[in-house]
């Protein structure tokens, strides 16, 4: 009887692992270029995670800054560099939840002037078209904000980072089937909220 074959370890994966280990070790030693590289490679998806959790694109800059400060303060606690992505996700998730709660508490006390983020100017042929476009943009973002964070998180990572189900599951610590189910539910809720509002 033949022995079941083990999954092959690709050279690329090994090299990536070694490179990651070296990058983390360099950053832990205080190597500035390595720290810059770490930020360049991971800032984008960490911002998407923050947006996915809070649903507020206008909060992302501030919270992402807090996330990176916490990363520098706690990087020594990362013992296994292979787990860098899930460790960063954990830091970002907690920072986003804490910051979101603090902002909601503050807004509850003082009343908030926060509205949906200023919509980037969309070049349209007419001012009326631009206004309609801005309104649609605000409506779409409100719909995303109204999604439960549970469903919004994979939805944002799928659309902003173009990650596969496996990559999303790897980052969020979920089975692929769960990621798929949450995306189906996110789409169902968005369809219910936006029915008739988007040109097909």
């Amino acid at each position: 009887m033949s022995k079941p074959s083990e999954p092959p370890v690709t050279i690329a994966a090994t090299v990536d692992g070694e490179a990651l280990q070296k990058l983390v070790a360099d950053v832990q030693r205080g190597d500035r270029p390595a720290a810059d590289r770490l930020v360049r490679e991971h800032d984008s998806w960490l911002r998407s995670v923050v947006y996915g959790i809070t649903g507020r694109p206008d909060w992302v800059d501030d919270i992402a800054q807090q996330v990176w400060i916490q990363v520098w303060e706690r990087l020594d606690s990362l013992k296994d560099p292979q787990r860098l992505r899930s460790w960063l996700y954990s830091v970002a998730r907690h920072a986003a939840i804490d910051a979101g709660e603090a902002r909601r508490r503050r807004d509850g006390r003082t009343g908030s002037l926060d509205v949906l983020p200023e919509v980037a100017a969309v070049q349209n042929a007419s001012p009326v078209g631009a206004v309609l476009q801005d309104e649609l943009q605000a409506t779409l973002l409100r719909a995303v904000q109204a999604l439960p964070a549970l469903y919004r998180e994979p939805f944002v990572l799928r659309h902003l980072e173009n990650w596969s189900y496996a990559e999303i599951g790897d980052c969020l610590g979920l089975p692929v089937e769960t990621v798929e189910t949450r995306l189906v539910r996110a789409r169902r809720l968005l369809r219910e909220m936006l029915h008739g509002k988007v040109d097909v």
């Binding site: 984008s44 911002r47 998407s48 947006y51 694109p57 206008d58 992302v60 983020p117 919509v119 980037a120 969309v122 649609l136 943009q137 779409l140 973002l141 719909a143 995303v144 944002v156 659309h159 902003l160 980072e161 173009n162 789409r187 968005l190 369809r191 936006l194 029915h195 988007v198 040109d199 097909v200």
Partner: peptide, 27 residues
């Protein structure tokens, strides 16, 4: 299918504008 695809496209576009992103690169 058409409605779901349109919502996907428009919501994705709205999120990218709000997050100042360009279209995601293909794999």
């Amino acid at each position: 299918l058409a409605e779901t695809a349109a919502i996907d496209r428009e919501v994705g576009r709205a999120m990218r504008i709000a997050m100042r992103r360009t279209l995601p690169l293909p794999a």
